[in-house]
Design a protein around this nucleic acid. Structure first.
Length: 141
RNA sequence: AAGGCGGCCCGUUCUAUCGCUGUCCCGCGAGGGAGAGAGGAAAGUCCGGACAACGCAGGGCAUCGUGCUUCCUAACGGGAAGUUACCCGAAAGGGUGAGGUAACGCGACAGAAAAUAACCGUCUCGUCCGCGAGACAAGGGUGAAAAGGUAGGGUAAGAGCCUACCGGUACUCCGGGUGACCGGGUAGCCGCGCGUCCCACGAGUUGCAAGACCAUGUACACUAACGCGCAGGCUGGCCCGGCCGAUGUUAGGGGGUAGGUCGCUCCACCCGCGAGGUGACUCGCGGGGUAGAUAAAUGAUAGAAACCGCGAGGUACAGAAUCCGGCUUACAGGGCCGCCUCUCUC
RNA sequence: GGUCCGUUCGUCUAGGGGCUAGGACGCAAGAUUUUCAUUCUUGUAACACGAGUUCGAUUCUCGUACGGACUA
């Protein structure tokens, strides 16, 4: 076990630029790890950038009250924060990935279930990375 | 004690670990440390302001809002203290309404008639006994609403026709009150509701996605002056009026898109004490610094405590988005102060 | 975040104080037809919710809920 592992979630690790979100949605690469839909897009990584940038989305139709939306987003971010090192380990050097997590459940789920979902997401991402490297055409940086 | 009425307040707390967003300090830097970090409604966006951009040449007509009085306030459609009518309550109390009425319009159905009243009816006279001519507005019925009410006098029968009391209205009457209004006096003056309308006061428009700046960078679509004053456009809605405006010359460096910075939190601010005022509130003195994010921070886990539940377990409503003052709506549970007592219990 | 609208049969809509709430497309039944379609007749079924104003509210006012549009 590495003692240097950091459970941080700073702005570098968040997806906040509008044009990157639009590029991500235009890519249409996605899968579901219930209760999360994952939309992802690989791209090059610049100096000092994080291997993964993540955003969370909760529909106003599913949760009418702002309190509930905040709650779901915070739980999802917390689950990602506690498990993100697994994702960082498998992203190849020189690449970065943008991820949008869309919450699908109609009710609030506890942290344990969301952590399981996040771990499921990382497993699937691992499979995708393996497939990409076996094709041996990494996207141009 | 119980039940109730009015007002005010709180609305989970602590510890550890891992995180998030500003601020300050240390460090060349990576980073480290200190301290701060959602609400009474942050909500709905129903009102009022601050602030900002644009407009400002005025006049007339429209439009919208408010509507008992006095006061408070930056302002308000808010608040305080009062007035009055009606309703609810045994009470403490609570709720709703309120400017003016000259003219015009409407009032379904029912009813004779819905505002120039007369169907049944009452009375007088005439009569061929079928009814006719006239007088009246008390009684009946209809309706949400029927032309002041009660009693007496009066009369052919009746009627404010007359009188008393009550209610309303009017008054260049008297007294009290800043005023709404109240008390008294005088006058038989006595036709309901709603709307249009009239009166007073207020309102320029759009909203921080307002607006300002920077870097990037496409490109003449932009700006100013002169000039021309046609089409047309703008000027809160309309009219008058005003302004701009094709093409050209000269000068300039601007506009859209995504990103960043500012606006951005210090104030009609909060707390305490004193004074004035019935009160809302104001004044004076002393002290305090109290979120500022931008796809959007204030969270997670564990363990205690408090409360609820027999227990498993649970912890109201709800999350800042420029900022204030209100209103409205949602809200588990709890506390404080003042007041009321029909019945029941002590 | 701000600004502004809307909610009427199953669907699209008309109506802006007194109506049996109208129309179209549906749906159902019947007639016509050998049968189906067309056509005709009849029926079915609605004012989002809660207060207020009014004699009376789908309509006017206020609140609640839901839906939608515009705005960088």
């Amino acid at each position: 076990m590495e003692t240097t592992r950091k459970y941080t979630f700073s702005k570098k690790e968040r997806l906040y630029l509008k044009h990157r979100v639009e590029a991500l949605l235009a890519g249409r690469q996605s899968f579901v790890s219930y209760p999360l839909r994952v939309i992802y897009r690989f791209s090059g990584r610049g100096e000092g950038e994080s291997p993964a940038r993540v955003a969370v989305s909760v529909s106003k139709k599913r949760f009418k009250r702002a309190v509930d939306r905040n709650r779901v987003k915070r739980l999802t971010r917390e689950a990602y924060r506690l498990n993100k090192h697994l994702l960082h380990d498998l992203v190849p050097p020189g690449q970065g990935v943008d991820i949008l997590l869309v919450y699908l459940e109609e009710s609030i789920v506890d942290l344990v279930k969301i952590e399981k979902a996040i771990q499921g997401v990382i497993k699937k991402m691992h499979a995708i990375v393996e497939r990409n490297s076996s094709v041996a055409t990494p996207p141009a940086g």
